[in-house]
């Protein structure tokens, strides 16, 4: 947005015309942008600057900035063990959920893309998790994971395998939450990828078949490259989504046990709305913002080269 504004006057650079004329295009552009700038300022920019502002303060019980501490909040974070744990848990969580979720969604979409009788039924089933709210499905998973009456432990019992404390053992909790998250996000990824698959020109496959290309060759040489913009989109969205995961954590584990599932967003929530430490919570939010920003930039720099736009 900003760039467009700076550049327009330079494009029509003419020293003789007045400033008013020079800026005409920019002013028109600004008028068009006004509604979104207005909305952004109220809902994004203002809270963002307020967050940065608060991160330099300790807040009182009403959440008002009370004591300026400079960079102390950030310093505390960098030395805090629980924040290190939180970062580690978040990265692990992203690692568990994003690749697995996309690969499974891709697999399901490839199957559902075949032209078979009744395939519509499977498409609906595979994308159905999109229609379930995080809260409702988390409660269902809570029953499945239940330590004494849960289905998973009953199945294990049936086979004589020792029970697993799915949500209570710090070594398993993150895995369990990841499984439910993958399942939960599957519907959305599936739908997007299926949409991408349907957009691929049928003629490409026809020509390939005439040339005698095998299924795998077609997949590698046609499907994946043609699908790359969609995949790139879904990877970016999933990545950001999983950095911001909150609902499942709140319902399934509340950040425990031993802080093993205390993802950054949950930790921010806990600091801000349970402990009323808006200062440290804001500092964490700023750190998270920078992390996601860097990651997204990195992704665009590295990933976009491989993306094949038609």
């Amino acid at each position: 947005m900003k760039l467009a504004l700076h550049d327009t006057p330079n494009l029509s650079l003419n020293p003789k015309t007045s400033l008013w004329k020079q800026t005409q295009k920019a002013r028109v552009a600004f008028l068009y942008l006004l509604p979104s700038i207005l909305l952004f300022s109220v809902f994004i920019f203002y809270p963002m600057f307020k967050t940065i502002y608060l991160s330099f303060f300790l807040t009182d019980q009403q959440g008002e900035a009370a004591l300026f501490v400079g960079l102390d909040n950030y310093q505390d974070l960098l030395t805090s063990q629980s924040f290190h744990k939180s970062i580690k848990a978040t990265l692990l969580f992203v690692l568990y959920t994003v690749p697995a979720g996309i690969i499974i969604a891709l697999f399901l979409a490839l199957m559902a893309n075949e032209k078979l009788r009744g395939i519509g039924f499977f498409r609906v089933i595979y994308s159905s998790t999109m229609g379930i709210s995080v809260a409702a499905s988390s409660v269902v998973w809570l029953f499945l994971f239940h330590p004494s009456t849960g289905m998973f432990n009953r199945v294990l019992n049936l086979f004589g395998i020792a029970e697993i404390q799915w949500l209570l053992d710090p070594d398993w909790a993150l895995f369990s939450v990841s499984v439910s998250t993958i399942w939960l996000n599957l519907g959305f990824s599936f739908l997007i990828i299926l949409g991408g698959l349907q957009n691929i020109d049928e003629h490409l496959y026809e020509s390939a078949r005439i040339d005698g290309a095998s299924y795998w060759y077609q997949l590698r040489r046609i499907t994946i490259p043609m699908l790359s913009p969609t995949l790139f989109f879904i990877i970016t969205i999933s990545l950001i989504n999983s950095f911001q995961t909150f609902g499942q954590i709140d319902i399934l584990t509340k950040g425990g046990p031993s802080e093993s599932t205390n993802l950054i967003v949950y930790s921010i929530y806990k600091d801000a709305f349970i402990n009323y430490q808006f200062g440290t919570a804001s500092a964490q939010a700023v750190v998270l913002f920078i992390c996601v920003l860097l990651l997204t930039i990195l992704q665009f720099k590295l990933g976009e080269k491989k993306v094949h736009y038609q």
Binding site: L142, Q165, L167, L168, K254, G256, P257
Partner: peptide
């Protein structure tokens, strides 16, 4: 150990 949830320990 039945965790932090009241319902879980009661069910146990």
């Amino acid at each position: 150990n039945f965790g932090t949830n009241w319902d879980d320990i009661r069910a146990a």
